[in-house]
């Protein structure tokens, strides 16, 4: 059985006929071909699928597309400026070598931006705790933490 689902993704209205069992991440990756959002696990731990929904970050592999009906969804593809300039958090990840293979990176960046917005001036300890839902196997988190601290500062400065 297929159903119609409609929402805004990266500012544009989209609608699709999907199977009811379609996950939000499947809609994003397979139907909208926005492949920057990744799937790294099937038990809601790795966070590679993290997207923003209605101003908060969620794991798009852990919800049905239907649960996002009418929502405002933003993926990694919408983070940089229209002219391609990196968002301060993305720039901080680059500057501090907060990524290696790049697979966990979109989820990390989505979570980091949301966290920094809501928790300006957070401590290293708080940053590490905020990454509980994002697994990285390459970086040992050291440079991700550094990047988020710096990106957070840059975001506050850019306001």
């Amino acid at each position: 059985m297929s159903v119609k689902v409609s929402m805004k993704v990266n500012g544009k209205p989209v609608s699709a006929e999907v199977e009811e069992r379609t996950l939000l991440v499947t809609l994003i990756r397979e139907h909208l071909r926005l492949t920057g959002t990744h799937v790294g696990c099937d038990t809601a731990q790795c966070g590679a699928c993290t997207v923003q929904m209605n101003g908060n970050v969620v794991k798009s592999c852990s919800m049905l597309a239907m649960q996002a009906e009418g929502a405002d969804v933003r993926t990694i593809e919408s983070v940089a400026a229209a002219d391609g300039t990196l968002h301060p958090m993305q720039a901080a990840f680059k500057e501090h070598h907060g990524l290696q293979c790049g697979f966990c990176t979109p989820g990390m960046v989505m979570n980091a931006i949301d966290f920094a917005k809501k928790n300006p001036g957070a401590s290293e300890h708080e940053v590490r705790e905020a990454l509980e839902g994002n697994l990285c196997r390459c970086t040992g988190y050291h440079n991700i933490v550094k990047a988020i601290m710096a990106g957070s500062k840059a975001m506050a400065g850019a306001k």
Binding site: A44, M53, N56, V58, K59, S62, F115, E132, G133
Partner: peptide
């Protein structure tokens, strides 16, 4: 509970 993302849902 869970993590930031899980707590939003």
């Amino acid at each position: 509970i869970g993590d930031r993302q899980v707590r939003e849902m």
